[in-house]
């Protein structure tokens, strides 16, 4: 709970420069009154990087009177916060599945992706927790943001040199995967429309088995 508030404040602080009179610290009390679910919604909303994130959250904190009815409100701004945060949440969940790591020389696992929203931090936490002993680099090439994950911690990183070459094993394993992907398809059930719905074209370039050279 506390870390969530901290994260949210950090995200908002970044934008504070261009914004009007509110001081983030004065929100602290209000943040603490909110339940965890609501805070999570606000945090996800802040990751959407929409133009009105800061104003909307200020507005929300002023209006919100501990109703437990976040997902249902005639207020268009409440609605925008809820729906956008849902979209962010969905993208985080999707990339938990779609992100593809490659093993590069030096013993790192490297993945690059181009998400619509700025979800690299929650995503990095997921992988830092999942693969404790791996040295992981996750790279948002759209925003040029990177995180280094190791032993359940995430560290902001800057990619200054080029990415090291793939290991010899990497080439073998990735070709095994592409062959597997091919062979597990049931031709009699072809349904490309459904596939397109599940794996949107905009993400395909960062997913190994969907890259053009394999399809």
């Amino acid at each position: 709970m506390n870390t969530l508030i901290k994260k949210l404040q950090e995200t908002l602080n970044k934008r504070q420069g261009k914004l009007f009179i509110y001081q983030i610290d004065s929100f602290d009390k209000k943040f603490r009154e909110l339940d965890k679910k609501t805070l999570q919604i606000l945090y996800n909303y802040s990751l959407s990087e929409g133009n009105t994130v800061y104003e909307d959250i200020c507005y929300f904190l002023e209006k919100y009177k501990n109703q437990k009815i976040f997902n249902f409100s005639s207020d268009p701004i409440f609605e925008r916060i809820f729906h956008t945060s849902q979209r962010v949440k969905r993208e985080i969940h999707r990339f938990k599945g779609f992100l593809r790591f490659q093993e590069v020389k030096g013993g790192y696992l490297y993945a690059s992706f181009k998400p619509e929203y700025n979800i690299i931090l929650p995503l990095s936490r997921h992988f830092a927790n999942r693969m404790m002993k791996e040295k992981i680099i996750i790279h948002d090439t759209k925003r040029d943001l990177a995180f280094f994950c190791y032993e359940n911690s995430v560290y902001p990183a800057k990619i200054e040199s080029s990415i090291p070459d793939k290991t010899a094993l990497e080439k073998i394993i990735s070709s095994l995967w592409i062959e597997y992907f091919e062979k597990v398809t049931i031709k009699e059930r072809f349904n490309k429309k459904l596939q397109r719905q599940k794996v949107p074209l905009k993400y395909r370039n960062s997913i190994l088995e969907f890259r053009r050279e394999h399809v």
């Binding site: 969940h93 938990k96 599945g97 779609f98 927790n129 999942r130 693969m131 404790m132 002993k133 791996e134 992907f181 597990v184 398809t185 049931i186 031709k187 059930r189 072809f190 349904n191 490309k192 429309k193 459904l194 596939q195 599940k198 794996v199 997913i207 088995e209 969907f210």
Partner: peptide, 17 residues
């Protein structure tokens, strides 16, 4: 290495959907 998620995670979809 590894954990499991209560909701499950899909990693890819084949051309049969």
């Amino acid at each position: 290495i590894g954990n499991t998620s209560k909701f499950g995670i899909c990693h890819s979809w084949t051309p049969d959907g």
